[in-house]
Design a protein around this nucleic acid. Structure first.
Length: 471
RNA sequence: CGGGACGUGGCGCAGUCUGGGAGCGCACCGGCUUUGGGAGCCGGGGGUCGCGAGUUCGAAUCUCGCCGUCCCGACCA
């Protein structure tokens, strides 16, 4: 009598579960060119919600949006040695335009430090022009050898912020501010993902950065995912692009710059952090559809009328609600579809409910159902959405903590990282240890203070290295 | 890019070893009955068997090449 599972159970084959979910929840398809993907409307609606929430926070941090070209002269990349070395293997380069060989090949941007640096240099003349705080929403291309939908695709959508500052302290403070007030705040408060913040070790830094800060999340299989990064670029790009200004003493100075980004990779993180064997579980503050009002059946049109009334009242109350009145399709199928898509709350209305003056509310996060009076449902739902939001974060935090282990040796770290995160004193991790962990696919995800904050002035031997397998 | 597995209607697969009718389940379309957890019955539509060569009277099936997908590794913000 047991039906075949809708999705491959996560415990059986996590990657397969992920693929199944992308298909069944109508999130994405592979594109015709290897490594590319088509983002379907439901997933794109979620991305648009992410964009809206992140964009609001970026603007609150003082940055302005602009747009720079997709094509970058190859020579720009070459001006910063580490940068070009880091990106060369994954560049897409256009050599023919308009049917003719180009005099200088153009690269399809893998990131825009170089073009933006060129223009920042032009725009910054005085210390009064600083800080210069820019952001752009764009697509970028990095030719990937091993693509994975949303997590690593050859083309992806993202936001890249680029800023220039008078000195190192100001640049550092801004890079940290973005990490805390934009990225972590968004991930914790909206995505309900309890991300760790920390600094990357030298080997894991962005090509051309002097310091890379990161938000790391734990996925449902215990592996880590880098959800966003904020870089201090020192004066590397400022020097390469002659980004200078006159200070208040009339002295020529070189800027200090930062860059920071989050991408459609966060979609993959959202899926793998909250998804369960029945599908997605979208946190309410993110959800493009927070409540679906499902007409169970309708003999005379009265049920649909009641459902429409609920939807319009919810909409008026600021809830993102929609109706499902496809009564020609069975109840069970439709309930299953909305579960796959992770809609946080489902309101079920049928003739029996209506006769009793009730509706049924089903929570996606814990599967519970409660019957409530029709009159109170609209008033109750906003609070219930917040409760679901809170419980998803609490659940993800508990799941992460249950798989996080403080260890005292590299061997223990490797063992703990097989199922989750290992926290080990950084002073115990030398180059040989990093190599040894590497053979078990374990890497240092970030360095933190013992209480989980960004490294500051403390000596290295007081820091903790969080180690894990990762995507 | 190295190792492995796999490409057959939208999805999941059988058929390939041993060459000769392109099939099954789900999904889709129509009708009737249904509708409180993945509906039932009847009737339908849809596939150059990944692509290209080759062997053969004849290729989904054998050979070679290429492309793609998934896993592992290397690489990678």
């Amino acid at each position: 009598m047991a039906k075949a599972p809708i999705l491959t159970p996560r415990a059986d084959d996590f990657p397969r579960w992920y693929q199944d979910l992308l298909n069944k929840a109508e999130l994405a398809d592979n594109g015709p060119v290897r490594g590319t993907m088509v983002i379907r409307p439901y997933a794109y609606a979620l991305w648009e919600r992410m964009v809206a929430e992140v964009d609001t926070r970026i603007k609150a941090a003082g940055a302005e949006n602009a747009y720079f070209p997709l094509f970058i002269p190859e020579s720009y990349l070459q001006r910063e040695a580490e940068h070009v070395e880091g990106f060369s293997p994954e560049l897409a380069i256009v050599t023919i335009g308009g049917g003719k060989e180009l005099e200088e090949p153009v690269v399809v941007r893998p990131t825009s430090e170089t073009v933006i640096g060129e223009f920042m240099a032009k725009w910054v003349q005085s210390y009064r022009d600083l800080p210069l705080l820019l952001n752009q929403w764009a697509n970028v291309v990095r030719w990937e050898l091993r693509p994975r939908m949303f997590l690593r695709t050859s083309e992806f959508l993202w936001q890249e912020g680029h800023t220039a500052h008078v000195d190192e302290a100001d640049a550092r403070a801004y890079a940290e501010r973005i990490l805390r007030e934009v990225y972590r705040d968004f991930m914790v408060e909206v995505l309900a993902m309890p991300v760790l913040i920390g600094a990357k070790i030298a080997q894991e830094r962005f090509a051309g950065a002097t310091n890379t800060l990161t938000c790391e999340a734990m996925m449902g299989d215990g592996k880590a995912l880098q959800m966003g990064t904020s870089h201090e670029l020192g004066q590397n790009f400022a020097t390469a692009f002659d980004m200078t200004y006159l200070d208040e003493h009339g002295q020529q100075q070189t800027c200090w710059t930062t860059s920071w980004g989050v991408s459609t990779r966060m979609m993959g993180g959202l899926i793998m952090a909250h998804g369960d064997d029945a599908g997605l579980r979208i946190p309410p503050r993110l959800a493009s559809v927070q409540v679906v009002v499902l007409v169970v059946r309708d003999d005379d049109g009265s049920v649909a009328d009641a459902a429409r009334r609920i939807v319009s009242e919810l909409t008026a109350a600021g809830v993102r609600a929609r109706i499902d009145d496809r009564v020609e399709t069975g109840f069970g199928r439709r309930a299953t579809e909305w579960e796959l898509k992770g809609v946080p709350l489902r309101v079920e209305v049928g003739p029996r409910d209506l006769a009793a003056g009730d509706v049924v509310i089903a929570r996606r996060d814990d599967g519970s159902k409660t019957t409530v009076p029709l009159e109170s449902v609209v008033g109750d739902l906003p609070g219930l959405l917040e409760e679901v939001q809170h419980d998803l974060l609490a659940g993800a935090t508990a799941a992460r903590d249950a798989r996080t282990f403080d260890v005292g040796t590299v061997d223990e770290a490797i063992e703990a990282a097989a199922t989750g995160f290992a926290r080990i004193p950084w002073r115990l991790v030398d180059d040989a240890a990093i190599d040894r962990m590497g053979t078990s696919a374990v890497t240092v995800r970030c360095l933190q203070t013992t209480d989980g904050d960004l490294p500051g002035d403390e000596a290295d031997d007081e820091l903790v290295a969080v180690c894990a397998r990762s995507y």
